[in-house]
Each structure stands twice: as C-alpha cells, then as structure tokens.
C-alpha cells in the first residue's frame, strides 16, 4: 500500500470514528425532538395517523385530511381569529419592547462596569445578575406583590399623595417589566464579557486619533461587541416569544401572549390542533430571529478564519 493510500485510509477511519461518536446524541435529538416536531407540523395539516393518533382521538374541533392532500383549514381558522391576531400582535410588541429595553439596560450597565473601577460599579453589576438565580415563578409573584393594585408601589404613591397611580400588574406593561427582569442578567453578563474583551488600548487609540469617548465607544466598542449583542437580542427575542410563566402569572386574561394562549387552547379548550398551529407560527417567528444569530456567527467565524 502506498503512503498516500495509507494516509487516505487513516483519514477516513478518523472521520468515521468522529461520525460514530456524534451519532448517539444526533439520534436522540432526531427521535425525541425532530420526530415530534415533524409529527406536530403534519398534524396542523390534518394528518392524524401515527404518533398523532392519540391526541387526534382526544382533541376536538379538528380539521383532518380527507385523502392524501393536506388541509390548511386549521391555519385558516386560527389566522382568521381576531383574538389570535391580537395575541400575536401583543406577543410581537412585548418581544420587541423587551429586546430593546434589555439591550439598552444591558449596554448601559456593561459600559458603566467597563469604565468605572469603583465599588458602586461592582455592586451594580453584581445586582444586575441576581435575577438569574431566582426562579421565574418566585420572581413573577414578587413583581405582582410590587406592582399590583394593593402592592408596594401603589401604597407608596398613595402615602405620598398620588391617589390614582397606575397598577402595572395584570397588564402587558407588567408582563414587559417581568420579561425585562428575567432576561436582563443574561444580557448584562454577555455584553459585559464582550466589552471586557476589548482592550483599553483600542479605545485609547481611537481617542488618540481624535475621537471623543462616545465616538470611540460607537466606532470601536459597539462593532467589536456586535456578536454578543446579537446573541443577547436573538436569545431574548426567542425566549420572550415562547415565554409562558411571566405572562401567565403577571398578564391579563386577554389579550395575552401566545405562550398562554397555546396552553389555554391545548389544556382548557382541548383544541390541540389550533394550539400546535400557534406553536408553528411562534416557531416561524423564532426561526426568523434565529437567522440573524446564525448569520452573525457565520460572519464572525469568517472574520476570524474559522469558516
């Protein structure tokens, strides 16, 4: 056997070993996630066989196929429902507002921590990540206690003479506050880490060239922390889109976010097909957000020569 043939054989054997090592988790993901996803999507088009047969036997108000061709009736019903469209709009608005607020607050705290060396900066950064260690259910009840009609803030305002101060609980404003509260630590951690990896000399070099501090931040820090920023934005967006606990506990009965609506359709109304249609809509929105994450990662990998 020639040396070249030997090298090719060794390389192929190494590749096969790598493939076999990766195979078990891939099979587990395909079986426990991929297959149910495909079955659920098939169910929204009216296919009730296979692993959909149990849910199809129990659910009501289903639109099932009559023959082999798929039916879009479930989509027609859900998308034509004005309450769903309102919930979708509310979900999108809460997601956008939360992402914007999380980004602004995370950047502000991270910048403060990056340029201030004092005790207060350390304290603020430490406090900003505390919500990460508090379960969302506990946090949601805490927020309710704080912002409900008989909560802390209204009581305080009342004592200060403001009789008609607004109560944020059981409103989408309260939901947004809760979403920001739960997603802020991740944002602060990631953006702080991104900013701390930008050496001081790069800022000094920008200032040396004539840039003010704010211009140096815009020209150097923001582009260099673009990847963590996009990760925070996409993960926050996807997290808020599919959230349940915060809108369920803090939000109003209606309109509410799609996570709550899905649960209601699935459990309370026994309309599993409609719930899955809503899930597909949320999935499409999340995939749209995920595209930006993948694109940013690919761009970063190209920049560093990994792609």
């Amino acid at each position: 056997m020639t040396a070249v043939a030997q090298r090719v054989r060794t390389r192929n054997r190494t590749r096969l070993r790598g493939f076999l090592l990766a195979l078990p988790p891939v099979l587990v993901i395909a079986f426990f996630i991929g297959l149910p996803v495909i079955a659920a999507i098939a169910y929204t088009f009216g296919y009730s066989g296979g692993i959909n047969s149990v849910v199809a036997a129990l659910a009501q108000k289903q639109h099932l196929v009559d023959g082999a061709a798929p039916t879009f009736d479930a989509y027609r019903e859900v998308l034509g429902d004005s309450s769903f469209r309102t919930d979708l709009l509310v979900t999108v608005i809460v997601t956008i507002v939360t992402v914007v607020l999380v980004m602004v607050l995370s950047w502000a705290i991270a910048l403060y921590a990056r340029f201030s060396r004092g005790v207060l900066a350390k304290l603020v950064t430490a406090l900003a990540v505390v919500p990460m260690f508090i379960p969302v259910v506990i946090a949601s009840y805490a927020i309710l206690t704080f912002y409900s009609t008989d909560g802390f803030t209204r009581t305080l305002f009342h004592l200060l003479g403001w009789e008609d101060s607004p109560a944020l609980a059981y409103k989408m404003t309260g939901v947004t506050v809760g979403q920001v509260w739960t997603h802020l630590p991740f944002g602060v951690l990631l953006i702080s880490s991104g900013l701390s990896s930008v050496p001081d000399t790069l800022i000094d070099a920008a200032r040396d060239a004539g840039a003010s501090m704010s211009r140096a931040v815009r020209a150097v820090m923001i582009p260099m922390a673009a990847l963590p920023t996009i990760i925070v934005a996409t993960f926050t967006g996807i997290g808020v889109l599919g959230s349940f606990t915060v809108p369920y506990l803090i939000g109003p009965n209606a309109p509410n976010m799609l996570g709550v609506s899905m649960a209601q359709y699935y459990q309370s109304f026994n309309q599993a097909q409609q719930a899955v249609v809503m899930a597909v809509v949320v999935f499409v929105l999340a995939a749209g957000i995920g595209y930006f994450y993948v694109r940013a990662n690919a761009k970063s990998a190209r920049g560093s020569g990994r792609l």
Partner: peptide, 15 residues
Amino acid sequence: ERRPTAMVFQNYALW
C-alpha cells in the same frame, strides 16, 4: 483627542 500628538501603541492597537 485634542492634543497635537499621535501614539503608536505597544501591541499596535489596530482596530
């Protein structure tokens, strides 16, 4: 940023 100086940094500090 307002001084008539320019610096070449130890690690070059290129963006």
